[in-house]
Computed example of a mutant assay.
Amino acid sequence: MRFSITREALQKGLGASAAAVPTRAALPVLSNILIQAEDDAVRLSGTDMSIFVSLGVPAEVQEPGVVALPARQLVEISRVLDDAPVKFSSAASEAAGSGTGVDIECGQAKFRLYGQAPDEFPEFPEVDFGAAWEISAGELQTLIERTSFAVSTEDSRPILNGILWQLREGDTVMVATNGHRLAKMTQKLSGGDAPVETDLIIPPKALNQVQKLYPSDTALQVARSENHLAFRGGDRDVFTSLIEGPYPNFEQVIPKDNDKIAIVNRAALETAVRRVAVMADDPTRRVRLSFMSGGLNFRVQTPDLGEAEDAMSLDYEGEDIDIGFNATYLLEVLRHMPDEDVRMTFKAPERAATFAPASGEPDYLCLVMPLRILD
């Protein structure tokens, strides 16, 4: 194997593929990046056996070949190289038992890395792109951005560690929840028909790679097998295992009879919550919101620490209500709201509250379960 590549192209390929390499690999080969040199490009691939990422970058290939090299050392080498062509070539000699050797040269700097036999590197899942559907990367990234923050990070309910992607004829819905908060977004599919009545539960790490790897104007091809989902756009591929099991019926927890409605400026509400939350030092980060005609009061009381109060004006319809929220959950919801004004609805202090763009566009809703108010 012998090829020459720019430092910029090398860093681009490593940045994408190394993101899928586990910090602690169960198998030694998983700590490597697979480098495949052929024609006028080099493809770099990494995996943790759950997520597979592959990116092709331009290169001058003199001799095709394939090698698996340590990801961490490759990334570190790429960071310290001069801005000059980087030359890779099979090592002329190898230390006994050291595996496959590759020489790397850039300017006066020279390195030799020993990797593992490339045939030990896991094969990518078999997914038929002949049955793929298309979606704009920008549309998919918006769905991910608006919902993924609400996913669970606890191990008690593994199904909630995934993001639900529902595909319906002409529509797509993405949902994430941890049981205490929920985010849901619906939008029309503009890239053609998708499989009807398909529900996919996807690890957030895979969707995070989709956010990072693809320019927003990329037309993504999306295909699935029984246990895997794959994204392809240009020279970049992302494959992921799907999480198995039934996702909870989220529609049942979205209240339909909330009769108290507040329209509030998002930025003003966020500022007020952030201000009083300085005193919310207990694990629940509890903030008390008191809604009344024309106004909203905030209060935080933390034993042995102190208290904070604030107030703001707003449009409110309904009886006065005091309701407690986790300040962190509130701030995350507000940060992802796409509208200047937020429509909040309530029923009772112990019932779920909803948050949505006041304009009704896009079709986006968040839910936050309240906390018990301590008098």
Rank of each mutant, 00 (worst) to 15 (best):
Q166W: 07
G245D: 02
E350I: 12
G192P: 15
K205N: 11
I163M: 05
S148D: 10
I77D: 02
N249D: 15
G115Y: 00
A25W: 01
G306W: 02
G46R: 01
A109P: 15
L296G: 00
R168W: 11
G191P: 04
I201M: 04
V102Y: 02
L55W: 13
R299V: 03
S293P: 12
L367Q: 09
G130N: 02
I263M: 00
E307Y: 07
I254Q: 04
H228E: 06
V210D: 04
A59P: 12
P58G: 03
L55N: 06
D103G: 06
D339G: 00
M369W: 09
V300H: 06
P283W: 05
L213K: 09
R299K: 11
G97L: 07
R72T: 00
R24K: 14
P195K: 04
G15N: 01
P204H: 07
A176D: 05
Q73E: 03
M185S: 08
F149D: 08
S216K: 09
V66A: 14
L113Y: 00
L189P: 11
P303Q: 04
Y114R: 12
A25S: 11
K256A: 07
R168I: 13
V80A: 08
D310Q: 01
F231P: 10
Q116P: 06
M185P: 04
R112T: 04
A91Q: 09
A194H: 07
F88P: 02
Y364E: 01
N258W: 03
D339T: 00
R43L: 05
G170F: 02
L207V: 06
I35V: 12
A131E: 14
V287D: 09
T240E: 13
D39T: 10
N258P: 14
A37G: 05
K205L: 11
P204A: 09
A358I: 08
R2L: 14
I163K: 00
L365K: 04
A92K: 11
I163L: 07
F346S: 03
N227A: 15
L189F: 03
P357G: 00
I201T: 06
V61C: 08
T302R: 07
T284W: 10
M292F: 14
D83M: 13
I254W: 04
S290A: 14
M344S: 00
L213H: 10
S78Q: 05
L334A: 02
P64R: 03
V210L: 04
L167S: 12
G306D: 07
E154N: 09
E317T: 08
T271N: 13
I135F: 05
G65A: 05
P283Q: 08
V66S: 13
G294R: 01
G318M: 01
G295D: 03
V196N: 14
L331A: 10
E139R: 06
Q11V: 11
D237V: 14
Q62I: 13
S93Q: 12
E60M: 11
E319Y: 13
A71D: 00
K188D: 14
F298E: 01
T100Y: 12
E307A: 10
R157M: 05
E134Q: 15
A352F: 04
I5A: 08
S93D: 10
L113C: 00
E145I: 08
